[in-house]
Design a protein around this nucleic acid. Structure first.
Lengths: 164, 164
DNA sequence: ATATTTAGTTAGACCAGCTAACTAATTCTA
DNA sequence: TAGAATTAGTTAGCTGGTCTAACTAAATAT
């Protein structure tokens, strides 16, 4: 979609790259979403469950922060996942306002499976690429994720269980 | 969120990369979506409008194909964008079943502006990266987009205005 | 002339996100 | 220490994007 008429804007190259990344992300997620119906785990759920499993039990607010969404979004997400037995909410003893979320065994198991399903097609496509391209994408993935969390840059104390 | 226990699976490295790309795409789009409210153009709209502008007037079905979504999704998307004066639908004279979609001047103008808005934060972040990283991301964006359109691979003739 | 195929829409569902307004628990302060 | 302010989370209600199933209308094939 890019390849628009060049104008003498500063940072035109960066703009184009940003634009292409944007499109690529949309198309990537759309193509992955095909697997949702069978796996029962959408992208956002998979992503949240992943945080819950690997960043240990954490408060609702922590999850909202990690996922970069507003609290009500997390309320709904966790409520639905709780209904399906993937996570549990436990009232914190020290501060009875906070609810700690943790994964159930079933949640842990489904994370593996769901992730495999959702990502397997992409992984298969990756296998067909030349080694250099695969390496490039591995590095790019890390870069993008760092780039995509601008409010956090340098300002958010690392969450429990988060890589330093 | 990856960094899971290594198992001796074939293609473990590709799986991890795919997983990371998945997360990165989710977080990227979430971070970009913040600009939506001000621009009036969400990701999907921006993406569709971009196709309409640069791939010229095209039938609804062509847009659905390009965007990799089902026809009803396009019906709604285009209907809403038409309401806002961004695109028009014209009955094709030769085959009166098909509706050609084309951008209005207003649509064209808003595309520029909306894209700028939505992507400007990311572009700014890119500018702060070392040159090598920027180049890497530019290449990665193209790779990802190609990867993410598996049904089209090799089968779709390049659209007008699309880089060859 | 009818049957089949194709393009698009409508209806109805679901999920993910938001803001605004609320409750309950905690902490601050006068 | 009583009341005010803050914090954690929920509820209600909206928008948007996506899907499938069932439909209409036009074109094509038998």
């Amino acid at each position: 979609m890019p390849s628009r008429p060049r104008q003498a804007t500063p940072a035109q190259a960066e703009f184009d790259t940003a634009d292409r990344l944007h499109s690529a992300a949309i198309h990537l997620l759309r193509s992955l979403r095909i697997e949702d119906r069978t796996s029962g785990l959408s992208g956002p759920r998979l992503s949240a469950l992943s945080v819950i499993v690997f960043a240990g039990p954490l408060p609702m607010s922590g999850l909202a922060l990690a996922e970069q969404v507003q609290p009500p979004t997390i309320t709904k997400l966790v409520r639905d996942m709780e209904r399906e037995g993937l996570v549990e909410r436990v009232r914190d003893a020290h501060d009875r306002r906070v609810l700690m979320v943790r994964a159930t065994d079933r949640g842990r198991a489904l994370l593996q499976e769901g992730r495999r399903r959702r990502v397997v097609r992409l992984a298969a496509a990756l296998e067909k690429l030349p080694v250099a391209d695969r390496k490039l994408l591995a590095r790019a993935a890390r870069l993008i994720d760092r780039l995509a969390r601008p409010p956090a840059v340098g300002s958010r104390p690392p969450e429990r269980g988060e890589a330093p």
